[in-house]
Amino acid sequence: MSLLGFVLAFIGFNLLCVNTGRNANKIVDMTLTLAQQRLLTLVGWVALVMSLWPMLTIDSISIALINWAMLLTLAACTVILLLTYRPKLLAVLAKPVTHWLA
């Protein structure tokens, strides 16, 4: 369950960072229209918030919140390290999205 939460948060962060202009070139080879950017941002935020839900199924709300915060930290750390040192990996992971966008 926690893995699902991690995956969701990871996807969320990923999508968010695909968006910001500076990083977009690193991951996707195409420029996104404004509408596409907005859509990706929205989905990214939703994924982040949704990643709380699997944590809630395991524990009470307070413990779930703490675990969720820790999870976000881990996901963000992974994304930022990949983005800095191995952006190609992120591109591979984002392939289905770019396919669908193109």
Binding site: F13, C17, T20, R22, N23, A76, V79, I80, L83, T84
Partner: peptide
């Protein structure tokens, strides 16, 4: 906070 967050330029 998110734009800068995701850029780490060593």
């Amino acid at each position: 906070i998110f734009k800068d967050f995701f850029s780490f330029r060593p």
